[in-house]
Structures are given as C-alpha cells and as structure tokens.
C-alpha cells in the first residue's frame, strides 16, 4: 500500500468526542480515491492528518514506505512531500500566478524554476495569465493555479479538499475533465474529498462513504452508486 492509515483516533479538542476512531485507510500507488460524506463526517480531517496539519491521538500514517506520524515520529508538513489544494485555494494574494506556483520550488535555480513553472503552467493552460494576481483570475483559473502550485513540487500524493465547491455547475464539468486529464498525465496518487457524487464518478478509481469518522461503504464508484448498502450511503450517493 502506498498510503496507509492504521488505527487512527483523532479529535480537535481533548474534551470533545473523537472525529475519527480506529480509522483505517489504504490506497495503492497511482490510484485516485474519492471520499464522500456529509459535513462533519471527518473527510477533511483525513486530508489534514495526511498533510501533517493535524496530529492524531493514536495510530500510524505511512506514505510511500515512510512513517509520517506515530507515537514516536512526526514529519512536519514541509517535509512530507504532499501537495494540497485547499477548499478556497489559499492563493497568496500578494503574489502573481507565476510567483504562487514557484513558491514551493525556491530551492531550485532560477532557470530551473522558470522552466518548471512554465511546464506546469502549460499543463494547466495558464501561460497567458502568469503575471496576473489571484484577484484578477476567474474561479476556474484560480482553481487551476492552486492545482499547479500543488503539483509543481512533484509531491508523492495530491490532496484535494472540496476542489469544486467554489465553482458554478457548468464550470465544474469542464474543470473535472481537465483535472482528470492532468492527474492521468502525471500519474499521481490522489485523494479527493467531496460531497458531490459526480466528482467521485468522473474522477475516482475508488470511493469511500464516510459517516461520523467511520467508513460505511467502499468500492468502485459505479458499483457503489448503483448498490448503496445503507440508508446513509443511499442519501449521499443519491
């Protein structure tokens, strides 16, 4: 397994109930997994734990054979090689598209950096917008900039937190297509958190339905959608 979460317990506040309890997750290399669930089901928490933005109370997280977090080890977010696209994109407002994308590869030489950013800009079809600031971009362009910024560092896994929630329906369909293409081209292991079954259907190889921190159903998206095993799964996949 390329990504492995074992026996995870997590809560945001020590006095509160666990968001995740004895949670297990396994993903193969190159696979795209979609996590569906209603608000508060713990789906974004899974991404934050994988990115190292939160620390679990119990359990172990392994990415690419390297232990990222257990009782004795904690690899900080900057050393995890994880790319993440945030729900509201979190594009740095004081930087241009080019600067935003090159931000994560400042260790490279100027020439290498420029080349890499241009390659990524071409991939996401944003070359003409490289000098613009985030507020000058449309929703779809902002989303692609965030994606480019996340993948330019060549991370081991890509995490997408509700990537389409800020887009209107027409735009969503187009962006889904191009996102699928990009993921296929770079062949990266991807986890998408969403509450829209169409995201899973169009993008994912595997789908899990989450409720109160527990996996209610797991499988291939088309199969799950045609045969939900609980009322909850049915309501989520309807």
């Amino acid at each position: 397994m390329f990504v492995n979460m074992t026996d995870i317990d997590f809560c945001y506040d020590k006095n509160n109930e666990n968001i995740l309890e004895d949670f297990e997750l396994n993903i193969d290399k190159g696979q795209t997994l979609s996590i569906l669930g209603e608000s508060g089901s713990g789906k974004s928490t899974i991404l934050r734990l994988l990115a190292g933005l939160e620390r679990q109370k119990k359990g172990q997280i392994v990415i690419g054979n390297k232990i990222m977090n257990n009782e004795n080890t904690f690899v900080s977010p900057e050393n995890r090689e994880v790319g993440m696209v945030f729900q509201d994109y979190a594009l740095f407002p004081h930087m241009t598209v080019f600067e935003n994308i090159s931000f994560g590869i400042s260790n490279l030489s100027k020439k290498q950096r420029k080349q890499k950013v241009l390659e990524t800009l071409t991939l996401v079809d944003l070359v003409d917008h490289k000098s613009k600031y985030p507020h000058q971009l449309s929703g779809g362009q902002q989303q692609r900039t965030a994606l480019a910024r996340a993948i330019v560092t060549e991370p081991q896994i890509l995490l997408l937190d509700e990537p389409f929630s800020n887009l209107d329906t027409n735009l969503k369909n187009n962006i889904r297509e191009s996102l699928k293409e990009i993921i296929n081209v770079i062949g990266i292991t991807t986890i998408i958190v969403s509450h829209d079954k169409l995201d899973a259907l169009k993008l994912a190889d595997q789908l899990i339905v989450l409720k109160e921190g527990k996996i209610k159903q797991k499988g291939i998206p088309e199969q799950l959608i045609s045969k939900p095993n609980t009322g909850y799964a049915e309501s989520i996949l309807a």
Partner: peptide, 9 residues
C-alpha cells in the same frame, strides 16, 4: 498551511 505543504518551515 498551504505554504507549509509546499515545503516551507
């Protein structure tokens, strides 16, 4: 957090 996941301390 975005900056941290992009490799910056």
């Amino acid at each position: 957090e975005a900056s941290r996941t992009l490799g910056n301390g």
